[in-house]
Design a protein around this nucleic acid. Structure first.
Length: 467
RNA sequence: GGUCGGGUGGCCGAGAGGCGAGGCUCAGGACUGCAAAUCCUGCUACACGGGUUCAAAUCCCGUCCCGACCUCCA
């Protein structure tokens, strides 16, 4: 079997994955700033890195996966005033909305999910270290800044030159040594929450938390740091600046997922073109949305449209239908198996679209095997497909997606439908097709689809638009 | 101004010097009493202009267009 290679934003190349500690993989992914309900761009990131995590686990790695929650920042404070609730209540409200979205999409909970406000101590320790090393300074106004000119590796991730950067419009020329120095810590303002520090009360700057928490949970050096493409600058550059100035090895590899776009433009709150997960889930099921978001390569823009989403859901339902049919024929759930075609694709920087082609092959083989009554081949195809879907987080037999509480009802319903089907079979037997079609149409009107297969008629509950 | 991605068939979406990715839609066929499902066949594309090469969607030069980042962003 091939071995895993992954793209690295820092070197812009795809290289073999070799972890810091053999057999283990440590990952830190920047999670959400919980200041609004999640849109599908947010969860795309969640899905992409969940697929990475699942593939690493399937490949035998012991994975530690950290995804943080930024629960204190300017936007949260502003939003809290607007929504007339305490900032911490607002943060919790949206943190729960994100958790619900992740759950609906079968994004596994991180090994640890640290909140920024829970790690103020680690942030203060990191700032002290940075000041001791001469990398940061506290000008006395309560702020703490990082001295970016001291660090030669600054901006290597985004490949920019310090002097080419446009200085921030609101740069503090009085206290900062250089307008491009960024705040590790912000002095308390009237009415804002604050925590005591040796430099006065204040609250963390955005970047500090990730350096502090990555260090707290993963140590000085870890394997992969991930996040959305828009975090490359400034967030990840600043994380590198903080962590390397502290003497940490920090992330060995950087991975960034691309956008979900609409009309070619990035989905973002400021553009007002966001599609909330909760809204999309009224149109398709969570497993279908996940299939859609996961089906494009993680480094490619995904141009959202309802048509594309529907198309994707249609394709997924075909695969799902085959698995259900195979279970009806074989009598047991498929045993997940990873085909070499699927593995080769995934090992090539998670080439999911190519991996999907291998699923299509198995699907065709499997459907043909059903027609031919070749049980061994049905089993093999179903096993391969389930193995692939499991890695993609779209296994219809996964407990997350299983229909709950329907067992008894389905059994009863099956009895009733079988009665009707017996009548229909009798009508067909005597060539009374008007009567048999009446039964089929009647069931169809109730949302029950009848298909006459080689193994006899089968029924399923049909899904209609907007269900 | 600086940095970085893109432009592929009706649509979505891979690939990155030679071997028609795949899916969806549509059309035709097989199967079926008819459907549905399934399978088969068809629709053969790489923004434009040059160049390199035996061979270019892929490499080089130029042009056009779209998008992202440059201190809120997944």
């Amino acid at each position: 079997m091939s071995s895993l290679s992954l793209y690295d934003t820092l070197t812009r190349t795809t290289t073999p994955f070799s972890p810091v500690i053999a057999g283990k993989a440590s990952i830190y992914v920047c999670g959400a700033t919980v200041q609004a309900a999640p849109h599908i761009g947010h969860v795309r990131s969640g899905v992409n890195f969940d697929i990475l995590r699942r593939w690493l686990i399937k490949s035998g790695y012991d994975v530690t996966f950290i995804r943080n929650v930024t629960d204190i920042d300017d936007k949260i404070l502003h939003k809290a005033i607007h929504e007339e609730m305490p900032w911490w209540a607002l943060a919790m409200k949206y943190e729960r909305a994100f958790s619900a979205a992740y759950t609906a999409l079968n994004v596994a909970p991180p090994t640890y999910e640290p909140r920024a406000t829970g790690h103020i101590t680690q942030m203060i320790e990191l700032m002290q270290l940075l000041i001791e090393k001469g990398a940061a300074y506290a000008p006395g106004n309560g702020d703490v800044y990082l001295d970016v000119r001291k660090l030669s590796s600054y901006l290597t991730l985004s490949r920019q030159k310090l002097d080419d950067l446009q200085p921030a419009a609101d740069a503090d020329e009085v206290n900062k040594k250089d307008p491009r120095d960024f705040a590790l810590w912000k002095a308390a303002k009237e009415g804002d929450p604050s925590w005591p520090t040796p430099w006065g009360p204040g609250r963390p700057g955005w970047h500090l938390e990730c350096s502090a928490m990555a260090h707290a949970y993963l140590g000085e050096t870890f394997d992969i740091h991930g996040g959305g493409l828009d975090l490359v600058f400034p967030h990840h550059e600043n994380e590198i600046a903080q962590s390397e100035s502290a003497g940490y090895g920090f992330a060995k590899r950087w991975m960034h997922n691309a956008w979900v776009t609409q009309s070619g433009e990035k989905m973002s709150k400021s553009l007002g073109n966001t599609l909330q997960v909760a809204e999309i889930l009224k149109r398709v099921r969570g497993i279908e949305l996940r299939w859609y978001l996961g089906s494009a390569h993680y480094r490619s823009m995904l141009e959202y449209s309802e048509a594309a989403l529907d198309e994707s859901a249609t394709a997924f339902r075909r695969i799902e239908a085959f698995l259900h049919r195979s279970v009806e024929i074989i009598g047991t759930l498929p045993t997940p198996f990873i085909s070499s075609g699927f593995a080769d694709a995934m090992n090539d920087d998670l080439a999911v679209p190519t991996a999907l082609a291998s699923i299509s092959e198995s699907l065709r083989t499997g459907n043909t095997a059903i027609t031919d009554g070749n049980k061994a081949l049905i089993v093999q195809s179903a096993n391969e497909i389930r193995g692939a879907l499991e890695v993609l987080g779209c296994d219809p037999f996964d407990a997350t997606f299983a229909q709950s509480g329907g067992e008894d009802l389905t059994g009863a319903l099956d009895g009733v439908i079988q009665l009707a089907l017996t009548q229909r079979a009798a009508a067909r037997e005597r060539k009374d097709f008007a009567a048999s079609d009446q039964i089929r149409d009647g069931l169809s009107a109730l949302g029950i689809t009848i298909e006459d297969t080689a193994q006899g008629p089968r029924w399923s509950i049909s899904r209609s638009e907007g269900e």
